[in-house]
């Protein structure tokens, strides 16, 4: 167990450094001087040079690289051009909303996905299987944000069931937090649920055609027992392996779904910054999301190792 975690950590550290390096290099790719972007088009060259010196932009490449890395490790990602506040603060205060939404979406995706996948995968070729396969095939093609729009239209605008557009931080009121998450989570999670269902179906069907299923059946074990006590764990391995990608898809989609439900998350902030060319925020946002993804994958990798004895380092 300790070995497994240290092995995975050893893999994650270079990934983090790599991502940070790429994010740093983004600065060089932006056309035009950041100083000009801060000061606006009317600024004279002297003031631009002065601001550049103040930001350390006139320093040689490696000095800038190390300065940037040094501050990034301490959590300093610079200040926003637009509002002048520290980027880290701006991102962190929006993190809970994003995490809530992604978490809600993941719960919906896993619950619906595994159920549908099991229904089809344990009886491949059956009517149930064909129905679930059809449902998932259609669901995969529905854009998350469109589903959000329709849900909002039906439940909030037309029926008025769910309080409209209300994200409440969990520490303020857990119940309202949960209520506000229902529709966005469904909108976000259903598409990924279909992906999980498809992968679970294939995996389960494949697992149940394995030779060892025959062996266990031959010992007189009931099919239900074979499926749930043995098949499930085997079938979950490939599904878990693709869950990292699912989470990444959910984070990406949460940006768009968040806009539909006016979620005050990182996506919203990023979007404004992209349109407003507030580059430090974009840079910081990319880095923070990347770190989040790497951490999620680290956790999933460890789970994977626990589930699959072959993936454990000897």
């Amino acid at each position: 167990m300790g070995k497994l975690i240290s092995f995975r950590l050893a893999l994650a550290v270079p990934q983090l450094i790599l991502v940070a390096l790429v994010v740093f290099l983004m600065t060089y790719l932006v056309p035009g001087s950041p100083a000009a972007a801060i000061l606006g088009t009317s600024a004279n060259p002297e003031r631009v040079a002065a601001v550049e010196a103040q930001l350390g932009l006139d320093q040689p490449f490696f000095t800038r690289l190390f300065t940037w890395f040094g501050s990034a490790i301490q959590g300093d990602l610079g200040n926003s051009y637009a509002v002048g506040r520290p980027v880290t603060d701006m991102l962190l205060e929006r993190m809970p909303a994003t995490l809530s939404l992604v978490f809600g979406g993941l719960v919906v995706a896993v619950l619906i996905g595994l159920t549908l996948g099991l229904l089809g995968g344990t009886r491949p070729g059956s009517t149930t299987d064909r129905v679930t396969t059809t449902i998932t095939a259609i669901t995969v093609a529905i854009p998350e944000f469109w589903l959000g729009i329709i849900l909002l239209l039906v439940f909030s605008v037309q029926l008025g069931w769910v309080p409209v557009l209300a994200y409440t931080p969990i520490e303020v009121d857990p119940l309202r937090w949960a209520q506000g998450l229902i529709l966005p989570s469904i909108a976000l999670g259903v598409g990924s649920a279909a992906l999980i269902a498809r992968s679970m179906r294939t995996s389960m069907a494949e697992t149940l055609s394995a030779r060892w299923v025959d062996t266990l059946t031959a010992t007189g074990m009931s099919r239900r027992r074979v499926i749930f006590r043995y098949g499930l764990k085997n079938a979950l391995i490939p599904v878990l392996a693709s869950t990292g990608l699912t989470v990444s898809i959910l984070i990406g989609a949460s940006f768009v779904v968040g806009q539909v439900f006016a979620f005050p998350g990182i996506g919203d902030l990023m979007l404004r910054s992209v349109i407003g060319k507030d580059f430090p925020v974009v840079q910081g946002g990319v880095l923070m999301i990347a770190v989040l993804v790497i951490v999620v994958n680290l956790v999933l990798d460890i789970c994977y190792g626990l589930l699959n004895p072959k993936a454990r380092p000897e």
Binding site: G244, F255, V274, V282, V286
Partner: peptide, 17 residues
């Protein structure tokens, strides 16, 4: 690592640049 990043995020970064 590159594939693990959310697609929309990558696209936003490219469009920002």
């Amino acid at each position: 690592v590159a594939q693990a990043l959310p697609g929309i995020l990558v696209a936003l970064a490219v469009i920002a640049i």
